[in-house]
């Protein structure tokens, strides 16, 4: 019953621009997901294999997005790259939310010295420039390069997630501060519920809505940061099909006129970021409780 209410709220008869932003964002994300899932079937060439075509071939019918300096097919690499982009970004967001949200709940509800200490830690992470922070964590996790692709992806996700934990923490904590003053929380205490029950059954369900737009915005930012880390050489290894890696290796050939090697990865990063940003912005607008008053 509540689900249909939410649906009616998000997709009503009278729609504004944010409803179409949401739709467009979701469509792009679905396309990206299909790309990532079907990459092994659609991709015309092996993305890692070198010299499948003549190096520096501009876009043509055989190589839709051209080939790079080692003769690898850019189109195939783009398709496979969707996998690592989505995997790294979602893992980073999941880790950040899984740590930030519970800590925010606890800190906001319990208060006192625990709250002070946690807030201090989170604020100091937040105050640090995010890319430099992620860079430092990635460098610490990957001394001298990761041993395998999987561990490189996990380490990159971890490095990114550290940067996002404070945003979940702060938003959830702030909401809890007002939710915990509700009479129904007092009622739960009077019924004899312990702190954990009060948190999970009474406080959390009423405090998590503001974190939803952050999830999608962080997703967008995570793709950018992952690209940035790969670009700087602490993310994924250079042979691996990844938009950030390709952008990083491709831009060096720009002066030779080989624009396709960096343009297409850049375009994909732009599209994915835009899609998640649109979803995030739209949700932020649609889930705002004061919206109805306009």
């Amino acid at each position: 019953m509540l689900m249909t209410d939410v649906l009616r709220h998000v997709w009503p008869k009278r729609r504004g621009i944010e409803h179409y932003m949401l739709l467009m964002g979701i469509v792009i994300v679905i396309c990206l997901t299909i790309m990532a899932l079907l990459a092994p079937i659609i991709a015309p060439y092996d993305p890692i294999k070198t010299y499948v075509g003549k190096p520096y071939t501009p876009p043509c019918t055989e190589h839709l997005f051209g080939t790079d300096r080692m003769g690898r097919d850019v189109f195939s690499r783009i398709l496979w790259g969707a996998r690592s982009a989505l995997a790294v970004a979602s893992l980073a967001v999941v880790i950040a939310a899984a740590i930030g949200i519970p800590l925010g709940l606890l800190s906001g509800y319990i208060g006192g010295p625990i709250d002070r200490i946690l807030s201090l830690i989170m604020d100091s992470i937040y105050a640090f420039p995010s890319l430099i922070m992620a860079l430092a964590v990635a460098a610490a996790l990957n001394p001298g390069g990761a041993t395998s692709i999987t561990s490189a992806m996990i380490n990159t996700s971890l490095a990114i997630s550290v940067v996002y934990i404070p945003s979940y923490f702060r938003v959830v904590r702030a909401t809890v501060l007002s939710v915990r003053e509700n009479l129904y929380v007092k009622a739960a205490q009077a019924l004899g519920a312990d702190v954990l029950t009060i948190l999970t059954k009474y406080v959390a369900p009423n405090s998590l809505a503001p974190a939803i737009p952050i999830i999608s915005m962080n997703f967008a930012d995570a793709i950018l940061t992952a690209s940035g880390l790969s670009f700087l050489g602490v993310g994924l290894p250079p042979y691996f099909p990844d938009w950030g890696v390709d952008l990083a290796t491709g831009w060096r050939d720009l002066p030779n006129g080989a624009w396709w090697m960096s343009f297409f990865p850049g375009l994909m990063i732009f599209l994915a970021t835009l899609a998640f940003m649109m979803i995030g912005d739209a949700l932020n607008e649609l889930l705002n409780p004061r919206r109805g008053m306009k």
């Binding site: 009479l183 009622a187 009077a190 059954k201």
Partner: peptide
């Protein structure tokens, strides 16, 4: 807590909206 219970003033605020 089993033996003493309270009924609050505002029934709009004393019930968890998600339950």
């Amino acid at each position: 807590r089993r033996r003493v219970q309270i009924i609050f003033q505002d029934p709009y605020a004393s019930l968890n909206p998600r339950m």
